[in-house]
Amino acid sequence: MSRITQALIAVSCLLQFVNAYAGKQTLTIYTYDSFTSDWGPGPLVKKAFEEQCNCTLEFVGLEDGVALLSRLKLEAANTKADIVLGIDTNLTAEARATGLFEAHLISANNTTLPTVWNDQYFLPYDYGYFAFVYNKELLSNPPTSLKELVENADAPNILIQDPRTSTPGLGMLLWMKKVYGDDVSIAWKKLSKKIVTVSKGWSEAYGLFLKGEAPMVLSYTTSPAYHIIAEDDQRFAAASFVEGHYQQIEVAGLVASSKQKKLGREFLQFMMSEKFQSIIPTTNWMYPAALAPTKMPPAFKGLIKPSRSLLFDDSEIAANRKLWVNEWLEAMAE
């Protein structure tokens, strides 16, 4: 076996050597693995960028945004990353606090986000809203507000994710907090009667939903687009809530210790271009952060548009996240 390992190592060294010889630079991007998987935006992004940069793009795919941040904290200044792509606005304050990022110096005025973007360290590449997805054939009148879901005893059962282990779970926690404020514990207690289960990650909950374990699952407003475009299946929809929907914005940043900042900035610029942005909708199933609505796939036009986008200031999240998770745990423990 060790021979195989050695062979693998030898091959990877050789490849690095060949690249160096060809005078090609390598840009290393840390991201989450569903971005780099065959079905994610990764392969298309790599191809498009390499065509224009005379460089090699190397993705390191970690479990999720949280894993990305902790990897960065572990490696600190020794990190191999030039770019970190895939943390979201719930984590940007913590990421900034590590001091490992450098200002991107790129204008973000072409963004199509519902809010103005003025973060100097991070640039958004896509965004979405958390929402409860349901099957229209099985559920004819879904709740129209979070309050209805929480307080109406006849509201349908739901599947959610755990805020300690998953991004949508944390999104739900913040959504509830935004709507209920200090009364959130009481609201969670009421809601808990309708929660069939709290899964580790998005995949478990969504899989259980498709198996019919509950009429509604916490996912994104854009989820139905997947079923429409990829499966030609019109049955799924997201329930629109009058309070508005909690927003998630995914961002990328330039690592301060990178030796290839010029190339890195080139990539960030590319990230905001139409080429990159038009890959996002049907691979990451999110709204691109800077793409004219006319360039969007038609199926996205039929999706619900939240009346309000809810978002905490990232520093507020950083300061209170543990507190709020504990609050949730206490409320759910009874």
């Binding site: 282990t165 808990s192 709290v198 899964s199 759910m332």
Partner: peptide, 13 residues
């Protein structure tokens, strides 16, 4: 056991 307990366990209890 982790994911099984969390997901089939019905909640943070």
């Amino acid at each position: 056991s982790f994911a099984v307990v969390l997901t089939l366990g019905g909640g943070p209890k």
